[in-house]
Simulated assay, not measured.
Amino acid sequence: MTIGSHITTFAGRPVANYPDDLGKAKRAGTAWRLEDTDYDDSGEFRERLAALAAEDWVGDVEALVIGNWGGAYDTAPPMGLLAELLPRFTGLRALFLGEMTYEECEISWIQHTDISPLLEALPLLEVLTVRGATELSLKPLRHERLREFTIESGGLPAEVVRAVGECDLPALTHLELWLGTDNYGGDATVEDLAPILSGTRLPALTSLGLRDSEIADQVAAALAGAPVVARLEKLDLSLGMLGDEGAAALLAGQPLIHLRKLDLHHHFIGEAHLARLTAELAQAGVELDVSEPSRSRRDDRYIAVSE
């Protein structure tokens, strides 16, 4: 699986391109997409960002989707310019940074930098999604309003996972980390997840996704006794290399029948453990997604999104 198409909605709003869709889309209630239409850095992204920031209706913009900022395969987003201009978007509540298809830039090629200035410049931001993790960093910080935080990657560095766990995010209800594979920098271990799994951080968390992971079995084993699970409504271990070992750990661990949904799609679980999961969870009213099964040997397993 690769990311082959752009999103059409973000944060509950339809996506429209700026400036091409002016006159066709509502100024408010739209997630405006900004990008450089040249794969290389033509300067078009910065021009479009400045133009949108200068619109007399900039305060009506509630959501932004930032695609290729120009040469994203070897150039980080212009964080200084973003931190300078985005505060003019006084109504901005949702931001997607790096929404690119594989044809524009493979997920593991997208270059990043420290994203802390975005959160510091946008104290009212409620939703942040970041795609790509090469050179990505985050310093532990406090943000009062962030409710949803997602990092999509083919390999998420351990230091980023630890930094997320060290952040003070009292309003966060949804956290989603695509852990990826060590082949693309995803060197996080379950020990790096400990602050998140302990339940002492992120007091409002009800939805946790630890997705696209080659260590899905170890993550499942850690979750089997993790205090945070007791207050979750949704647990998502999809897109990874979850097999019988991880399924057995989930079945032997703390009860999961309080969950509203358990998402395991794209997995390597055998029929016997699938039957037990269905009997114990689906029959208890848990929405269980075990679609996209594979019977590959352990050595042939793969995560859904890597390069």
Rank of each mutant, 00 (worst) to 15 (best):
S238Y: 01
A279Y: 10
L288S: 00
D289L: 02
L259Q: 06
K261W: 09
T278K: 10
L256M: 11
R295D: 15
E280N: 03
A230I: 14
P293V: 12
G243Y: 08
A282Q: 13
A272L: 11
P255Y: 07
K261N: 10
L237V: 11
D244I: 09
D236C: 05
Q254M: 15
A247W: 05
A249P: 01
G240Q: 04
G285F: 02
L274D: 00
L281T: 05
D263I: 10
F268E: 03
S296N: 12
Q254K: 15
T278E: 11
D263R: 02
S238E: 04
P227I: 12
V286E: 02
V290C: 11
A275C: 04
A282P: 07
A249R: 06
G253H: 10
L232D: 00
S296P: 01
D236L: 05
H258N: 01
R276A: 12
A252F: 11
L274M: 10
E292C: 07
L288R: 02
S238V: 12
A279K: 14
D236M: 07
L242D: 00
L274I: 03
V286D: 01
V229E: 02
G243S: 15
G270K: 05
R295Y: 14
R260H: 13
D244P: 00
E292G: 05
L264R: 02
L239P: 01
L281C: 03
E233R: 15
L262Y: 04
A252Y: 08
R260V: 12
L235V: 06
S238G: 13
L277D: 00
H265V: 05
R295C: 14
A249Q: 08
M241Y: 02
E233Q: 15
A282V: 05
H267I: 06
Q283I: 04
P255M: 06
L237Q: 03
L264K: 01
A284K: 09
V286N: 02
A275E: 13
L262M: 06
A282N: 07
G253D: 10
L235K: 05
A275N: 07
L262W: 02
P227N: 07
S294F: 14
D244T: 09
R231F: 12
L264P: 03
D244H: 10
G243L: 10
A230T: 15
S238N: 06
S291R: 07
K261A: 15
S291F: 08
G240I: 15
